[in-house]
Design a protein around this nucleic acid. Structure first.
Lengths: 235, 235
DNA sequence: TAGTGGTCTAGACCACCCC
DNA sequence: GGGTGGTCTAGACCACTAA
């Protein structure tokens, strides 16, 4: 038998998801809910308390219990691709494929991709725009064994990330983040000054033991901010 | 008049901090605590529930309530303090306490700390050095209710982070990262040019639902890089 | 002043864990 | 079987908010 507070929780969640209780709205009082569901006030209290704890509701003594306003928390460090991230913010994503070819892995790239220096790897270079504004230069090296047809994909309609993630479940990601100034080439690609501070993110992703890709992301400092939130506790 | 469940909470926190209840230990049962403190079981329950929610205790139905094992820092983006980070690299950490005072929370600070605009909060401003080189300007606002003696700590021997983490298990962290140029004041504090790209990290940390601190970290781009690795899969 | 959440009581029954 | 937490009741008093 399910605890009876779950009936109240489920009801509230449903109303909120359907929009019957919109963000900022006040929900029925503890006493009201208790009466309607035929339980004691402490039981209604537990249902509400759980949802407050979950971040869905907030309470004000003497005033009422309210549906929390949407938190604008955008993408974290997770494997979300930039197109989704932009759409989630309500923006329009577009991109230009600048280069798409097979290259020889040299230096850092070979080391980080874990292949022999000089071996052939796939390379894509794409500029991503949010509402027409260039916000990311993505340069990606892909292990060709894992995605033999990588170069034949349609990158105008899908991002490289989406293509790879669809095929290989990403189990590990490593990031390094630093502030740099762009090279003249990079500045030109992003239409910014060489003087502008940029956020450079280097990402390596694995599927199990396999290193899938090595990616450099360059963002104009004035146009982009990274967000990440972690929950590490036991609740 | 303080609610009576706080007496039980305070007692438990004290015992845990003093080591009387060590990680992994079972604490007295709800009934026992209720009897000893002369309250009803529901009241003892609320005290325990709060500490579970805060991540300090964990419960097992039918077995008991246990002190949570301290999770050593996950190697993520986490709560590692910069002194440990530097030492882990084999470097020598030192720091200068630049400011240490009570200030009024204004604007962003009040919003992000979740306190009333104009209310008093603790503020510390510290420059951290690795092998003598300045690599981080740390500006931290602390919720005074959570650490009333914050300003009396010895920040030359401990970092603010270490002090706070020792007291409150951090369950949630939120970061935002961007590339910026330093203000003239910031440049002076870090001995860098105003032209240098800097990594600006804003971090908020929670213990359960309590917002502990709001911290701004500024790093010279040429001297610092952030690293993070996540394991996300089931593989 | 009426309504709301915050706290509290003194019981109760149950499922679960461990002995 | 005895102890533990999970849930639940039917009341209660209080501080705070809003009208």
């Amino acid at each position: 038998m399910k605890p009876s507070y779950t009936r109240i929780k489920d009801y509230l969640i449903e109303q909120i998801e359907q929009g019957a209780f919109a963000p900022g709205d006040r929900i029925p009082a503890e006493n009201t809910l208790a009466k309607e569901f035929g339980v004691s006030r402490m039981t209604a209290n537990k249902a509400i308390r759980d949802l407050v704890h979950q971040g869905m509701l907030m309470r004000r003594t003497g005033s009422g219990t309210y549906v929390v306003e949407l938190k604008a928390e955008s993408s974290l460090f997770e494997i979300k691709n930039i197109a989704d991230e932009i759409r989630a913010r309500g923006g329009v994503h577009s991109s230009d494929v600048n280069r798409l070819e097979e290259v020889r892995a040299l230096g850092d790239v070979a080391i980080f991709l874990g292949v022999q220096t000089g071996s052939r790897v796939f390379y894509s270079e794409i500029v991503h725009r949010e509402n027409g504004v260039k916000i990311q230069l993505e340069r990606r090296h892909v292990n060709p064994r894992l995605a033999p047809d990588y170069l034949e994909q349609d990158f105008e309609s899908q991002t490289p990330n989406a293509i790879l993630v669809a095929r290989y479940p990403v189990t590990d990601v490593e990031h390094s983040v630093e502030a740099v100034h762009p090279s003249p080439q990079e500045a030109a690609l992003l239409d910014i000054s060489e003087r502008e501070a940029c956020l450079k993110v280097i990402r390596r992703s694995w599927s199990g033991e396999l290193l899938i890709s090595y990616t450099q992301l360059l963002h104009p400092g004035s146009r982009y901010k990274l967000n990440a939130r972690f929950h590490t506790g036991s609740l």
